[in-house]
């Protein structure tokens, strides 16, 4: 009597493959994609009281300020100075003011006559490098105010404080 000595015994890989592919998909989706509005070179300070941006304010202007106090524009933004030179950084507060005034005009034009097509951005989120001096930060804050923006928030890494 044969006890199946010739039968081939194979492990079932299909559920294992399903699981692995699901894990691969998870890591692919959670991969640290560089967000358009943020700059990875900016090292933010940390704060316990920092709150997440309100869901109603999903349309804000992000200004990435580096260690030297220069605003680094995102890939989709460019600035043309008074001499017609195109740059991807804003080197002083006056350039920040001009840039924001232009942005406000663009937003108002995009909003349409009733202002309902695309609401203009009213909040500025400042992502300032933690080594940047207050002198530079304050100059940018003043430029925001002069451009007509009243809501400015400083961005920080949220931490629990349990250290």
């Amino acid at each position: 009597m044969s006890h199946g000595g010739s039968d081939k015994c194979e492990p079932n890989f299909t559920p294992l493959l399903d699981l692995v592919l699901q894990l691969v998909m998870f890591f692919m989706l959670c991969a640290n994609f560089v967000m358009d509005q943020t700059n990875v070179e900016i090292k933010l300070p940390s704060a316990i009281a920092a709150k997440a941006l309100e869901s109603t304010v999903d349309y804000a202007i992000y200004l990435n300020v580096n260690e030297q106090g220069k605003v680094i524009l995102t890939a989709s933004d460019q600035f043309t100075d008074t001499e017609g030179k195109v740059t991807d950084t804003l080197d002083n507060a006056e350039q920040v003011r001009i840039f924001l005034v232009r942005r406000a005009k663009e937003d108002l034009a995009a909003a349409g006559p009733a202002g309902k097509d695309k609401p203009p951005r009213s909040v500025i989120v400042l992502r300032v490098h933690k080594e940047c001096s207050f002198e530079k930060t304050y100059a940018i804050m003043k430029a925001c105010r002069q451009a007509g923006y009243l809501k400015v928030q400083l961005r920080a890494i949220r931490h629990s404080g349990a250290e």
Binding site: V152, R155, I157
Partner: peptide, 21 residues
């Protein structure tokens, strides 16, 4: 993906009052 995975730190805001014009 496991080796290169680095979760992005959670960022938040602190609201402030702007200086006078």
């Amino acid at each position: 993906f496991i080796i290169t995975f680095r979760p992005a730190p959670t960022e938040g805001q602190i609201a402030l009052a702007l200086p006078k014009d």
